[in-house]
Every structure is written in C-alpha cells, then in structure tokens.
C-alpha cells in the first residue's frame, strides 16, 4: 500500500494572523502543519499499518519556509517528504495548487503505483475545502471527500461521508483520492522514537519543471484589498447576582434584537 498525504503549512490559528500586500503574512515561527492534515496523516498510517507494509509520502506545495509542515509529518511517522516550490507557483490558487499536487503525484507514480492520495478536510488559512475534489478531477480518479469513517479492503475504498445535513455511504475502487474530517480519527502524537527517526529524514525539494509544469498557471482572480476589522468595543460584563438573566434579556431588547 503506497499512500501520498497532502499537507499544508499554515499560520497557527493561535497567533495573530493577517495579510501583507494582500498575501497571507508568513512568519517563520508562527506557522504549523495544518492541524486538519494530521487526520490525513493518521488515516494514511493506519491504512498502511493494517496492510502490513507500504509507504507514506507527505507532499506539499509551498515555498521552502513550509518545511516545518513536512518535518512535523516525519515526527508523526511518514516515510518521505516532498516539497514542490517554484516561482511560477507563487500565489497559486486552488486550481494551480491542485494541478501541481497532481503533477507531483504522477511523478511519484512513475516510481511505483500510488494507491491512495489522502488530504485534510480544509486548510485552516483559507478554509476552501475544494482542493481534494479538484485533485481527484486532475488525476482522473474518484474523490471520496469529507469521510468520517474509512475502510479499505480488497482494493475498494468505502467511506461514510457527512456534510451539511447529509450522510452518505460511498465506495470506489483504488486508486482514489480521499479527504478525511477531524472526527475520522485521533491523530497520534510524536513520541521520542519517532522524533529521533525524523531527524535523519530529508525533505526532497522539487521544482515545477521536475514535475513537468512549464508555465505559470492562468490567473483567474485578483486580490483587491485586505484590511483588519476594527476591534470590537470592550464587552459589557455583568456579574450575576440574581438578575443576570434579566440583564441579558434587556441587552437584547434595547438593541432591538428580539
């Protein structure tokens, strides 16, 4: 079983996130592996463990400062880490990202079959939740997204998919693309043994031409503006001494919210 997990380096949601020149501000020490991709890594490791043998490759499209995401993936137990960086991919949108990820998967396939590509349910910076579907379309493989339960047996992937107010049972033959939700599993923690093993691992850096992409992808949208929202005025705090509920009701009524 050979699995590629796509991972993204994003600003930590616990820090003060923002924009610079309409691009997400990247500060080297305030970024992390997109937390939701830990669920993807976990799903991949579990499937390989259940199969008894195989390889898990973490793949990211990012500038070199995105390597901490791959190093975190090493600490969780992935075998290899590949980063695709190139000037022509700077400012890549969903389509360009999916195309680059797909091209890198194809290069990995030239070394040997890739049974599954597993992604997180969303990148916590943009919360698009569209790259997995687009990646399926680029690769011409079925994409089963937003899985909260995953099973692989006899070359068939089956999932329970939950979204909005819908629950679906879907299956598809491998090779396929899978995205898992944050409830699909409980990601493991890096332990001493894995951290030591991770130290010896090197990120493999590929350029666009290494994966057969020669020209910058067509631009479809242009950022116009990014501005911080004004701070909320300080909250009105009432300590309940028996009248707290009345105060709450009064707040709603005087602000014409009832």
């Amino acid at each position: 079983m050979r699995i590629v997990v796509t991972v993204k380096y994003v600003p930590d949601i616990n820090t003060d996130r923002g924009f610079e020149d309409c691009r997400v501000r990247r500060t080297p020490d305030e970024g992390t592996l997109n937390e939701l991709d830990e669920n993807a890594v976990e799903a991949a490791l579990q499937i390989v463990e259940a199969a008894g043998s195989g390889e898990v490759v973490a793949l990211t499209v990012a500038p070199p400062d995105g390597d901490p995401a791959l190093r975190k993936a090493f600490q969780l137990g992935v075998d290899r880490g590949v980063r695709v960086s190139d000037d022509i991919l700077a400012g890549a949108d969903y389509f360009a990202t999916a195309a680059a990820l797909a091209a890198a998967v194809r290069k990995l396939e030239s070394e040997g079959p890739v049974d599954l590509v597993i992604t997180g349910m969303a990148a916590l910076d943009g919360l698009g939740s569209v790259v997995p579907t687009l990646l399926g379309a680029e690769l011409g493989r079925p994409a089963l997204t937003l899985a909260k339960k995953v099973g692989v047996s006899d070359g068939v992937l089956s999932v329970t998919r939950e979204h909005d107010d819908v629950t679906e049972e879907l299956s598809a033959p491998l090779p396929a693309v899978l995205s898992v939700t944050d409830t699909a599993n409980q990601p493991r923690l890096p332990n001493f043994k894995r951290i030591m093993a991770a130290r010896g691992k090197q990120v493999e850096a590929w350029t666009a031409s290494d994966i057969g992409l020669d020209s910058a992808p067509a631009v479809r949208t242009r950022a116009l503006n990014a501005a911080p929202r004004p701070e909320r005025p300080e909250a009105e705090l009432v300590t309940d001494k028996g009248e707290g509920g009345k105060a709450l009701a009064a707040y709603l009524i005087t602000n014409d919210l009832v």
Binding site: R232, P233, A235, E236, L237, V238, T239, D240, E243, G244, G245, K246, A247, L248, A249, A250, Y251, L252, I253
Partner: peptide
C-alpha cells in the same frame, strides 16, 4: 459585546422568561 458571569442554569431560564 455583552456577557453575564454566572451559572447558565440560572441565567438562561430567567432571560427566556423575560
């Protein structure tokens, strides 16, 4: 914008009644 520091089992029913 607005908050009550208190036990929700006391505060919510009173607000609902009001």
């Amino acid at each position: 914008d607005f908050a009550v520091i208190g036990e929700l089992a006391d505060v919510l029913p009173q607000a609902a009644e009001e």
